[in-house]
């Protein structure tokens, strides 16, 4: 008996939790991609290796540092050094 009450309580809580997060305002899935070679110096989000890390890039359009941009827009970005890339170079 005790178990079935506990099950009911858990199921009820889970149902209302799922209802809460299904509300569109609360469900803000991030839809960004890492775009290399487009960040101005000091404006990068991060990248491994050359510096540690966000905002530490010392070169404009460093191909080893990325900036988060809306998914699908990276490779269409044009910089003086060429287009944005989805992988570091």
């Amino acid at each position: 008996m005790k178990n079935s009450i506990a099950t009911l309580a858990l199921a009820g809580s889970l149902a209302s939790a799922l209802a809460t997060i299904a509300a569109p305002a609360a469900f803000a899935a991030e839809n960004n991609e890492k775009c290399y070679g487009v960040a101005m110096k000091g404006q990068n989000d991060c990248a491994a290796g050359k510096h540690d890390c966000a905002g530490k890039s010392t070169m404009d359009f460093d191909k080893g540092s990325f900036k988060l941009v809306p998914a699908g827009t990276c490779t269409s970005m044009k910089t003086p050094d060429g287009h944005g890339m989805l992988m570091p170079a």
């Binding site: 809580s13 939790a17 799922l18 809460t20």
Partner: peptide
Amino acid sequence: DLSANLAGALQ
């Protein structure tokens, strides 16, 4: 509050 905490953990 179980419901709020579950929602928070999932979010």
